[in-house]
Design a protein around this nucleic acid. Structure first.
Length: 571
RNA sequence: CGGGCUGUAGCGCAGCUUGGCAGCGCGCCUGCUUUGGGAGCAGGAGGUCGCCGGUUCAAAUCCGGCCAGCCCGACCA
């Protein structure tokens, strides 16, 4: 490609509506343009990167036995009703009507449709199967954000496995786990695999692949000592035991005028340290009130409440609901003496005595609470969010909690969808067996963005060779006939050698060409100018290191082939 | 869904308080000079001021409604 003919609209200024680094650089570099919130046009450079990302993914999934399909994006609604996901995914489901008024679903994922295809499997002898496609997904995200990181329409590689039993699923899951590690490594990112909550996908076990970045939307707890890693929605930590005094034989109520928060009560004369308080929250879980209690210095993470109660319909109660249920306002709530309501408690409260909590009387608290003695019918769950610095649950070293981008997610689904859609085979024993499924996703454009988050400097993007829009740019530094001809010759010979090259033959000053090449992140630049040509050399510069060396014109091909090809396959 | 901010030329912004010719920088076009790190000079093109309505002799500017984009939060009492 000759740059003079290419549509690469680079921008000198940061776009005003972009905050995340990947968003800014991809827009400035002319890779993408926004159409509306959560919707981006891919420009030619973006398309090239995207294609290479998909190529790496395809390569690795094929390598573990994947067969590529291509399933529709327009789905009949009734299939989604049969798995119940018109309900469970209602918030993000986009639908359209055809001219007959039939409701169609724009696929947010493809478990249902792949399973429908899988109903044609008849015998365990046909298993295992690993099917995948790379296809658009539509999700009505409540809040798209950060450029390509969260959008309403995106490309996903989603694979699905079908096995006769759990052992087969485990094997396919492990294969994907390994393949994903290789994919992210080839995309130039350091990923860590974390245990996760499987959310709306259902199923029992899932592992997310995370890449650390401040632009991410998840928090990960990670132990650099032993490698423990988990999404904070799942993470735990070891806590130092607290020795409590016995306290009184029964709780004692006392007046706490003006005390509304845990902190207020810490500072109140006669109050208690936060870790000797019981925090009481009221939630509505599947339309029923639930009292949630934690240690005063701990915070609830709602995902754990969802996972622990098995409900996806969880919200904090409103002020009036709280008053109706407990007879007091938030700030004076407690679980002591409450009956007829589900009470869930975080494990950190187990065995605790002489605690202080609200009295369910405005402006009053009670002290001397023995959790297990004074609160009836407790259901024990893991509910609190892990904080940075708490001891690792495996080895006790301090955990680090940091933001990360979820670049992939793999699930052991089990038989839910297969059962709902009647996908089964005849097993070895001659009896019908429901297919055991797994599903595995990678967001293509999100990985492009994550790669930029992980590979940039103050001059722009630093693509790894594996997915750079071009591997080499030949920059013509002075547009006279001799220089241009020499550069074009080098360009042609590099192309002939199988390199992915662009010739910057624009009638622009060299500074413009250098800054553009650096902004869009091309790994190698061959600078061709009269000064070097007089000596029979051109300059070869590496984007990542900024190192530049003079190379005799005759050696350019072999020099670049060595550098580029050694990096092409990734690690 | 709640809160905050923002909509003026392709991009970045000023003008709005106090109503009165729609501006600046970059980019773009033409010419000349220049050419190893975002050139200089001269000339030029380009705008429903987000949309609808109201007030007024007069609205980018004041008032009302709507739409769109960005950021934060998702009610931790």
């Amino acid at each position: 490609m000759r740059w003079s003919q290419a549509h690469i609209p680079t921008l000198r200024d940061d776009p005003s509506d972009a905050e995340a680094i990947s968003h800014r650089l991809l827009v400035r570099g002319g890779f993408i343009r926004q159409l509306m919130a959560g919707s981006y046009s891919m420009l030619p450079l973006g398309v090239r990167v995207r294609a290479k990302v998909m190529g790496i993914i395809r390569d690795e999934i094929d390598a573990i036995g994947g067969q590529e399909f291509l399933l529709p994006e327009l789905h009949p609604r009734d299939i989604w009703e049969r798995t119940g996901r018109t309900e469970t995914m209602a918030d993000i489901l986009l639908t359209v009507q055809d001219h007959r008024g039939t409701e169609l679903v724009l696929g947010p994922t493809h478990e249902e449709i792949f399973t429908t295809v899988a109903t044609e499997l008849t015998s365990y002898r046909q298993l295992p199967q690993l099917w995948y496609h790379i296809q658009t997904k539509f999700r009505d995200e409540p809040r798209p954000r950060s450029g390509l990181l969260r959008v309403k329409e995106f490309t996903m590689k989603d694979s699905y496995t079908f096995d006769v039993d759990e052992a087969g699923l485990d094997q396919q899951f492990d294969n994907h786990y390994d393949a994903y590690r290789r994919i992210f490594s080839r995309l130039g990112m350091e990923s860590i695999a974390v245990k996760a909550s499987s959310g709306a996908m259902g199923g029992k076990e899932s592992v997310e692949s995370m890449v650390a970045s401040p632009a991410g939307e998840d928090d990960v707890a990670h132990c650099s000592n032993c490698g423990y890693a988990a999404n904070v929605e799942k993470a735990t930590s070891r806590l130092d035991p607290i020795d409590d005094d016995e306290g009184p034989t029964s709780p004692v109520q006392f007046a706490t005028p003006g005390v509304k928060t845990i902190r207020d009560l810490v500072e109140f004369d006669g109050g208690a340290d936060a870790n000797r308080q019981i925090k009481t929250l009221v939630y509505i879980v599947s339309e029923l009130p639930v009292l949630v209690i934690l240690r005063g210095d701990h915070d609830l993470i709602e995902q754990k409440l969802m996972d622990g109660t098995g409900s996806i319909d969880v919200r904090p109660a409103h002020g009036d609901e709280i008053r109706d249920l407990l007879g007091a306002d938030a700030g004076s709530l407690g679980a002591v003496g409450v009956s007829g309501m589900r009470i869930v408690a975080d494990h950190a409260l187990a065995g605790r005595k002489n605690m202080t909590t609200g009295a369910n009387v405005d402006g009053h608290h009670i002290r001397g609470v023995d959790v297990e003695r004074d609160i009836d019918g407790i259901e024990w769950l893991d509910l609190r969010i892990v904080k940075s610095g708490e001891p690792c649950p495996e080895c006790g070293e301090p955990l680090a909690v940091f933001r990360a981008i979820e670049v992939g997610h793999i699930f052991k689904l089990g038989t839910v969808h297969a059962a709902a859609l009647g996908a089964s085979v005849v097993g070895a024993a001659g009896k019908e067996v429901t297919l055991v499924m797994g599903s595995y996703g990678i967001g293509v454009e999100r990985n492009m963005a994550a790669c930029v988050e992980a590979n940039h400097d103050d001059r722009g993007i630093v693509w790894p060779v594996s997915i750079a829009p071009y591997e080499v740019v030949v920059t013509v530094v002075k547009m006279d006939d001799d220089t241009l001809r020499a550069a074009a010759d080098i360009y042609e010979s590099l192309i002939a050698s199988g390199l992915d090259v662009i010739l910057d033959d624009r009638d622009a000053r060299p500074g413009v060409k250098f800054t553009d090449a650096e902004l869009i992140g091309i790994p190698y630049r061959v600078t061709v100018g009269p000064r070097g040509l007089a000596e029979g050399v051109v300059e070869v510069a590496e984007r990542r290191t900024s190192e530049a060396i003079d190379v005799p014109v005759a050696d350019v091909i072999s020099h670049l082939m060595d550098s580029v090809v050694s990096q092409r396959p990734g690690i």
